[in-house]
Design a protein around this nucleic acid. Structure first.
Length: 261
DNA sequence: ATGGCATGACAATCATGA
């Protein structure tokens, strides 16, 4: 069967709920990883999502961060083995939710932004990713069919940045961050987007300012990494820029991977 | 030149994002 797995940083699920519901009704994706829900759990919109045919596993907090896994109730098995914090890393910030659906392990992650190279938040970002990498090594040994999807806040290569010279050494594109991304790939994960031919200037985020979207000044920082076994079953991976064209959009576009499982 | 937008908390600006 064909399974569509997506990731989308919605930058406030409260504000973006109408966009999300429209998008779900037209794309009918099976699993969606959401980041930056910015909601406490009591305010999570379970009702509207249930009406749209989706179940949710989520963890949030006031104002910042927050992640969720949405699954089509009629096509995806119930969530098992739910994890709502990064094991081995003491963290107040809600940035990770993982669950198993059938034999598919899905990890939804909102990587720290890092603010500026050399800052305390940058150090936290690198430590957070190191803990994620350690935990994923063990997860992969237990779950050969694993997907890591989310907002990585890392543009891994020059072609993922509209102006790599201007971004050189900056946060989101610094060498230690790119090395951390490669360390994740070294676990045996595959960047599903780069398994296929893609248009020039493919990005997933554009600054709200300076008409960056219209000018194609973006970064590819949202990714779907697949274990080797899953990568073999991936038949497509695409960025959907349409939601970014709407009024009051998220600054991120969704990414969709199609799996033949 | 460190802005520009956007969101949320909170009540005029401020923290944060990327």
């Amino acid at each position: 069967m064909q399974l569509k797995l997506a990731t989308w940083n919605v930058n406030s699920l409260k504000v973006r709920l109408p966009h999300l519901l429209d998008w779900l009704s037209t794309h009918r994706v099976d699993i969606v990883c959401l980041q930056e829900t910015k909601l406490v759990d009591e305010n999570f919109p379970l009702g509207p999502l249930d009406e749209a045919g989706y179940s949710a596993t989520y963890v949030g907090q006031k104002t910042y961060n927050g992640v969720a896994l949405l699954t089509r109730s009629d096509s995806v098995a119930p969530a098992r083995e739910i994890v709502t914090a990064l094991p081995g890393f003491d963290d107040q910030q809600k940035r990770l939710v993982a669950a198993t659906f059938g034999d598919l392990r899905v990890v939804c992650a909102y990587f720290p932004n890092g603010q500026a190279v050399g800052s305390e938040k940058y150090d936290y970002k690198l430590r957070w990713i190191a803990a994620l990498t350690t935990w994923l090594r063990a997860e992969l040994s237990r779950h050969p069919r694993l997907a890591l999807a989310g907002d990585f806040n890392i543009a891994p290569e020059d072609r993922d940045v509209h102006d790599p010279k201007a971004w050189a050494g900056q946060v989101l594109f610094s060498e230690p961050e790119k090395q951390a991304f490669r360390d994740l790939l070294a676990l045996g994960l595959v960047d599903s987007f780069r398994q296929f031919e893609q248009p020039e200037r493919s990005y997933t985020w554009w600054d709200y300012r300076m008409q960056a979207f219209r000018r194609k000044m973006g970064l590819r920082i949202d990714h779907i990494l697949l274990s080797a076994e899953l990568a073999k079953k991936c038949t497509a991976c695409d960025i959907d820029v349409e939601p970014r064209r709407r009024e009051q959009p998220s600054d991120h576009a969704p990414v969709i991977a199609t799996l033949s499982v």
